[in-house]
Structure formats: structure tokens, C-alpha cells
Design a protein around this nucleic acid. Structure first.
Ligand SMILES: [Mn+2]
Ligand SMILES: [Mn+2]
Ligand SMILES: [Zn+2]
Ligand SMILES: [Zn+2]
Lengths: 146, 146
DNA sequence: GACCCAATCAATAATCATTCCTGAAACGGA
DNA sequence: TCCGTTTCAGGAATGATTATTGATTGGGTC
């Protein structure tokens, strides 16, 4: 198991005032095990394997705290529960509309889109995100096969 | 009232095989009246003013049909019900995280982002969208005033 | 104009992700 | 150890959306 709880994470907890409880640690570990982009439910199932007493609500709370202090990120697709991501480096993710699998899309240059957006609206822009849907190779192949 | 039911729309109904019922026409009209980016509930309230018998479920059904045949578009933000838009020209919209108001963001050049995305994933990309959140001028001003 | 059939509708129940609530437990400092 | 605060587990509640179902409608046919 990689060193999930590095200095950076401990520091973010310290600065935020939140305590690093065993449940929050467990959620963090589950998130790094389930190397994909798990939903709250997915995380819950992993956490429960080691500690059957945790409730789904607790996982939601923990995820919310972790996101608030900037340790994880959430991504939202319509027609799907929220997915969580340990990868804090800005990047794009694509979700298969058929099976739900999420994969990263590296190497896309977004350029100055964010500045362009801010320059063209009187709103104070607080968040921008690229939403990508598609068919994964497996589902794309099965479309009229299997 | 502008000519909402232009040739284009009638033609899309004809080609799809769906019939242009009074309820669907009412939803379309409500959508063009509520010149913003109304939710299904918003549309429902407008429709109900003229025909109190329509049910919310009917509005959802009508919106779904209208989107399917390409007469309207839906946009999704987390923490908000789906918004519907008569403006079919590709464009960006920003939503105020405080009051929920949606406004268009003109003049942003997305460049070849979509091609870049498709070139960098084995997925067959079926949809991309830019999600923008912010504070509208009014809410931004009130942040530490009013 | 009466009749027929398929499409559509209204009303309501069900679903599902997420949040809220409550009393109990754990933690940290005086 | 005692106290106040934070966190937790469990379960109920919420809110948007979808599914179900039986009734209604409307357009074509005789
Ligand atoms: Mn990712
Ligand atoms: Mn718009
Ligand atoms: Zn797939
Ligand atoms: Zn606002």
C-alpha cells in the first residue's frame, strides 16, 4: 500500500482543524485501493470489508470533509452518482454511458479557456469543468456484437 | 409571442413520428416565455397557469420528447435540477451557485478541444460539455454587503 | 357520425442518491 | 477524571426524476 497519508494530507488536516479519524483514513485508503473513480457506494463497500460498522452516511460525511480540505476531488456526470478522485492534478475524465467506467484523458491542452470565460461574463467564475461522455472500447465493440 | 412553432420544429416532429400535442406545444411556449433557463418545475408552473390540469410528470415527459427530437437542450449542474434551453446554437452557460440564475457566456472560442479529447482517449466520445459555476453580479455584490 | 386503435395523458407510487437528525461514543484539554 | 466539542452510526427524510397504470384522446375508416 502506497503512502497515502503523506505530509501534504496530514498538513491539510492540521490547517483545516478537522481531525484525521480512523474512518476518514479508511475512506482515503479505500479511495486509493479502488484505483478507478469510485462512487460513495463503491467506497462504502471497500471500507465495510475492514470495518463493517461504518454506515454509508459516514462515508458521505468523510468524503465531504476530504473534498472540503482539498485532499480529494469530486466529479459529476448526469445519470451517475458522484465519482471521487485522488488525482488532484487538473485533468479530464471520460465516463462510459453504458457501463459507467471512468478513465482519464491525458494530454489535452485547455489553453486559456478559463480566462476567456471569465473575460466574457460578468459572473465571478468559481469553477469550470469539462464533462465528457462516451463508449469505452469494450462497450463500443459490443454495440452490435456479443 | 414569437413564432415558436416554426417550420423547423414542425418538421422535427414530423420526421420523428411524435405528434405535436397541445401539452408539448404548451411546454414549448412556456420555455420561450421563461426566457431564462428554466427547470422542469419552472416550466410546470408556467404551463399550469393556462392549463391547471397538466401534471408535473407530463411536463417531464414532454421535455424528454422535445430533447429527443432535437428541439430543446438540457444542461446539468450538480446541486441543481436540470435546466432546459431553447437556444440550440452551441454556447456556454454559467450558473450562480448562490441564487441559481443561469446566463449565457458568449464569445468563447473552444478551438479544437473536442478533437483533442477524441485523439487522446480510446473511448468513442459521444458528448462533451463545459460546466461553469460562479457568482452572478448581484450575489457577488451582496457577498459582504446588503 | 359512430367506431377503433394506438398514442398520449394524469395521477400517483416508486426509485435512488444524498442529506438531515438524533442520541451515543470518542477525543482532547484543564 | 471531568467537560465540552467533535464525530459517529443508524435510520428517517428529502427532492428530482422515472415507472406504472388505467383513462382519455384524436385521427383515420367505414
Ligand atoms: Mn481522474
Ligand atoms: Mn443557454
Ligand atoms: Zn463501457
Ligand atoms: Zn446569484
Amino acid at each position: 500500500m502506497p503512502e497515502v497519508l503523506d505530509h501534504d494530507i496530514r498538513e491539510k488536516f492540521r490547517r483545516s482543524g478537522y481531525t484525521l479519524t480512523s474512518q476518514r483514513r479508511a475512506v482515503l485508503e479505500a479511495l486509493s485501493e479502488a484505483r478507478g473513480h469510485p462512487s460513495a457506494e463503491d467506497v462504502y463497500l471497500v471500507v465495510k470489508r475492514k470495518n463493517p460498522r461504518v454506515a454509508l452516511g459516514t462515508v458521505y460525511q468523510a468524503l465531504s470533509v476530504l473534498e472540503e480540505i482539498g485532499v480529494i476531488e469530486s466529479k459529476h456526470w448526469s445519470d451517475s452518482p458522484t465519482r471521487y478522485d485522488l488525482n488532484l492534478v487538473p485533468h479530464l475524465d471520460v465516463r462510459c454511458v453504458r457501463c459507467g467506467e471512468v478513465a482519464e484523458v491525458p494530454g489535452v491542452e485547455m489553453g486559456d479557456i478559463d480566462q476567456q470565460i471569465q473575460a466574457n461574463t460578468p459572473y465571478e467564475v468559481t469553477r469550470t469543468a469539462m464533462l465528457i461522455e462516451g463508449l469505452c472500447p469494450k462497450c463500443s465493440g459490443e454495440r452490435n456484437g456479443a
